[in-house]
Design a protein around this nucleic acid. Sequence first.
DNA 1: TAAAATAATTAGACAAGACTAATTTTATAA
DNA 2: TTATAAAATTAGTCTTGTCTAATTATTTTA
Lengths: 217, 217
Amino acid sequence: MYTLSEENYLKSIYRLAQQNGFKITPTAIAEALGNNPASVVDMIRKLTEKQLIAYDKKKGVELTPQGLKDAVLIVRRHRLWEVFLLEKLGYHWDEIHDIAEELEHISDATLADRLDKFLGFPEYDPHGDPIPKANGKVPKPYSVTLTDLKTGDTCRVAAVRDTSSPFLQYLQRLDIGIGTNIQLLEKIPFDNSLVISISGRESTTVSQKFGENILVD
Amino acid sequence: MYTLSEENYLKSIYRLAQQNGFKITPTAIAEALGNNPASVVDMIRKLTEKQLIAYDKKKGVELTPQGLKDAVLIVRRHRLWEVFLLEKLGYHWDEIHDIAEELEHISDATLADRLDKFLGFPEYDPHGDPIPKANGKVPKPYSVTLTDLKTGDTCRVAAVRDTSSPFLQYLQRLDIGIGTNIQLLEKIPFDNSLVISISGRESTTVSQKFGENILVD
DNA sequence: TAAAATAATTAGACAAGACTAATTTTATAA
DNA sequence: TTATAAAATTAGTCTTGTCTAATTATTTTA
């Protein structure tokens, strides 16, 4: 299909497009990938030539229909492999992201669909992200975060935005997982810290950054 | 761990060492990998510096203890993934080699062992090749080929040496798989073609090259 | 709106891993 | 044992994808 780098750029652009509705700039992509903006400019040129993205200084980077299709497939593979690693191989949810990052690039035509079937057509990956369907349809991801709640609101953790090990380990320590109930007790005006109650237990304070990475139902 | 190329060289060298007891030359490696001998010389230098191989013009290329360990792990992963693809995802045996060729490079510390456990610690892969154990021990591979038999001998197909799609599809056409019984009826002196009976059925003639790729019990 | 800061881009370099062409070694055969 | 063929090696090139440093655009902000 494409090179490893090309695939990673497509996926990054897709993720950025999903997360915020904002303009996707070379700098934003560079940050997401941990690359230098100069390198990103090169790759933007390459992917534009291949008609996978369109770049307009005003609008920023956008995926073309083909680019979107390819990006969705990569994300589909990533999330299916995550389910496999957790459910079949017994990994913990803070260990699977990086491995899936490698597995997602295996490019056999029928592999994703076979894996999907083998896993029983899961709807969500272990982090609560929706798994794109074989036909390319992507179930709407959750979009409300803990920081969007009003004081007193109660919610269920539906997904996590950050899937990195440090964040997931922190969640584990707080005994928060997909499905955990959380009540927002208070917002601290000074730094937007959140005072919450996890599963009805005594209150805990978490940062704004933390809250933005918890998607709720 | 290592780069994709380095891993492929290690694996190739290991396979060559297993197959024939002969000297492993740059040219032989080049042929195995479909590369130019000049490129191989470069990589021999690199792997020698990394102490993964030793190269002596007289003895040819040899794996060092570390190189052997690494190569065996790659082969282990390859063969485990082949079992997974066939048994769990329902691929046919002529489709799995190339996919496993990609999967074998996924480098998580516990992945191979978890996969091994998940698959029930298989002894052989779908082509009859022995799967190296977690401790690095490699069961002795089959070494007698169809061409080694004497006229009249009967045997059981234990493994195939070539695992490429064209060869396996040919086998499928002849209705030969692991476990199939074959009797050698005649050797044609002119070109060493073999006249055989498959599962007791009417005779078929196959080439010497074919016979060399069938390992028997 | 002019100055300062930030972002985007260009130019040039580099490492990995491949190649071709030319050369040197080694092996084979007359 | 010399001539020929084959193998190994060197030198130099290319592509991919990265980088740094310098330059040009574009935003902010005073």
